[in-house]
Design a protein around this nucleic acid. Structure first.
Lengths: 257, 257
DNA sequence: ACCCATGGTTCATTATTATCACCATCGGCA
DNA sequence: TGCCGATGGTGATAATAATGAACCATGGGT
């Protein structure tokens, strides 16, 4: 269904940093003809998924998403559960916690919480988490179809710090390790001086639906802290997984102790 | 763009009361062929807008909406503003207040608040507000293209109470009155023994983006209360309108006094 | 053991969509 | 002033994509 793909592709170009896009620019971004872009936009407008700024003529996301997000949340209350769980995880570990779901080409943060103390890792909830450079991403890929990983590796693998791993084979190794261990510990991969420990949470079919993680300043990392965080993240994963009717993978289950 | 219309049409069949739908049933609801439905669903799944329950094989809304709703809200924070304003409106009028945005075939509640007192009107936030039977709906139609009203009147006009007006011409009269007055007062239209007073809030192009309303038990309705509510709802409309960068219609403006 | 529903797929037929060229308008700029 | 290169937007034909009847396989109900 190429037409549908194109329509969805258009939507993915709207971001918090670029919420309004003109016709020509959007056509350029999506690599479509202007006329095609316009016709798709007209359809999306009809269904309230796109709105047009009548003054600047630029297009932006519409209210339809508010509605469908509410419907989705009314039945699969991921955000609600994730918010609760992240709060709990932050409180018990005294470190920054965050949860994410699978987005089109990265993980999207759906809940985050920073503890009240001196040095903490700050999360920008609007920033997508690249699969290859974050603990969450690796943990997520580890418990999904290999196709998804390969698709992720075919993308441009951004180098966010000088330690970011961008070699596909090395990343495959990390994913393999995460699959065995049930978690992944990433250091300096996305932000300097930060260590992230992540695990997936699961769908009913056993695949990963998203990830939950704790991010700590690398200076505070110790065996004791990692052990504690690991156990609590596992408990958090179990909590979210059961809340959405998923089945926990044994490799994560065993970490709860 | 018929293909896009079909895809969007599919999405509108998912509701809080029927969050998971099987292939055959969805095809029947949307009046499409099974094969077509399946192909569209596959595309939507690829973009995370639909998920499939691997056990029951039924389809449900995906996490993509969570993401895009966040993007939309990050730039046009309607829900946040509406929540604040509704809280304020409820507190100052001591009656139930609620705000809604345009949905595919009705208004969708995005915020609501009931006061702490004996008899109050309860709002089910998941229930769509039909255009023809609610004060919000009439007020919304009054400040939009006539095409939209005609489309709304072509739908099945449900009779929710024995007082619900279902005659298209009578409804057109009500909309006309609302346009002149800047508000609409509806009694017993959607729920028995309830009076609703609603006004639209506006987009930058001057069209209605949604509605804000106060619902009170009919027994409490008095000229004084209506006058007070009218002024405060107008103020609330102004607040939301300016917050989203819209332009207030003079007929609503004049009600603030 | 049968029936009828479901989910899912295939391929010849058919309808939809892409493309390019075009127009009108706007804001800079000399 | 007039020109340039953007922009948003549109229409007719060529090229492509979507359709749907018929077809499995499966599973629950009588």
């Amino acid at each position: 269904m190429k037409t549908v793909d194109k329509a969805m592709g258009l939507l993915s170009h709207f971001t918090p940093t670029q919420p309004e896009i003109g016709l020509s620019e959007l056509a350029r971004l999506a690599d479509l003809d202007k006329a095609t872009t316009r016709r798709i936009l007209k359809s999306l407008i009809k269904h309230h998924f796109i709105e047009q700024n009548q003054i600047t003529k630029a297009y932006r996301l519409g209210s339809g998403f508010l509605h469908l997000a509410r419907v989705r949340e009314a039945t699969t209350p991921i955000t609600a559960i994730a918010t609760q769980t992240v709060d709990w995880l932050c409180e018990i570990t005294h470190e920054t916690a965050h949860a994410s779901v699978a987005g089109p080409s990265a993980l999207i943060t759906i809940a985050h919480k920073e503890p009240h103390r001196g040095t903490v890792v700050m999360i920008d909830p609007t920033e997508p988490l690249p699969f290859h450079a974050t603990a969450s991403g690796i943990a997520f890929l580890a418990f999904n179809e290999p196709d998804l990983m390969e698709a992720a590796l075919r993308q441009q693998l951004g180098k966010y710090t000088k330690f970011t791993e961008t070699d596909p084979d090395a990343i495959r190794q990390r994913v393999l390790k995460a699959k065995e261990d049930g978690f992944y510990l990433n250091e300096h991969g996305f932000e300097s001086d930060v260590a992230g420990l992540a695990m997936p949470y699961f769908n009913a079919d056993g695949s990963a639906a998203g990830a939950i993680a704790v991010a700590m300043p690398i200076t505070r990392k110790s065996d004791e802290l990692v052990t504690k965080v690991k156990r609590n993240v596992a408990a958090a994963s179990a909590r979210i997984t059961t809340a959405i009717g998923g089945v926990l993978h044994p490799n994560v289950q065993k970490l709860i102790r």
